[in-house]
Computed example of a mutant assay.
Amino acid sequence: MLTKIPRRTLATCAVLISILSVQAGATFGKHLFPIVGAEGTTALRQGFAALILLAIFRPWQNGPARKDWGVLLLYAVIMGVMNLVFYMGIARVPLGIGVAIEFLGPLTVAVLTSRRAVDFIWIACAAAGLVILLPWHGGSGALDPVGVFWCACAAVCWGLYIIVGQRVSDRVHGGKAVALAMAITTVFTLPIGIATAGATLFSGSVLLWGIAVGILSSAIPYTLEMLALKHLPAKTFSLMMSLEPAAGAILAFLIVGEKLTLMQVVAIALVVTASAGSSLTARRATNEAAT
Rank of each mutant, 00 (worst) to 15 (best):
M1D: 04
M1R: 07
T3L: 14
T12H: 01
A24P: 02
F28D: 03
V36R: 12
E39T: 10
F48S: 08
A49S: 09
L51Y: 06
I52H: 07
I52A: 14
I56S: 07
N62H: 14
G63N: 04
G63Y: 00
P64V: 09
D68E: 10
V71H: 07
L73P: 04
L73E: 01
M79C: 06
F86W: 05
Y87G: 04
I90L: 03
I90C: 05
L95T: 15
L95Y: 01
G96L: 07
G98Y: 01
G98K: 05
G98M: 05
E102M: 13
F103T: 06
G105V: 03
P106G: 00
R116F: 10
I123Y: 08
I123R: 02
A127E: 01
V131Y: 03
P135E: 06
G141W: 03
D144Q: 06
W158M: 11
Y161S: 02
I163P: 08
D170P: 04
V172S: 10
G175D: 09
G175S: 12
V178Q: 07
A181L: 01
A181M: 08
T189F: 03
L190E: 05
P191Q: 12
P191C: 11
G193T: 11
A195P: 11
A199L: 15
A199V: 15
T200L: 13
G204T: 14
L207A: 05
L208G: 11
W209D: 07
A212L: 06
L216V: 10
S218M: 07
I220Q: 06
Y222S: 10
M226A: 15
H231N: 15
L232P: 11
K235T: 15
M240S: 08
P245S: 03
A249Y: 01
L251C: 06
L254C: 10
L254E: 01
L260E: 05
A269S: 15
A274S: 07
A276F: 04
G277W: 05
A282L: 05
R284H: 12
T286N: 12
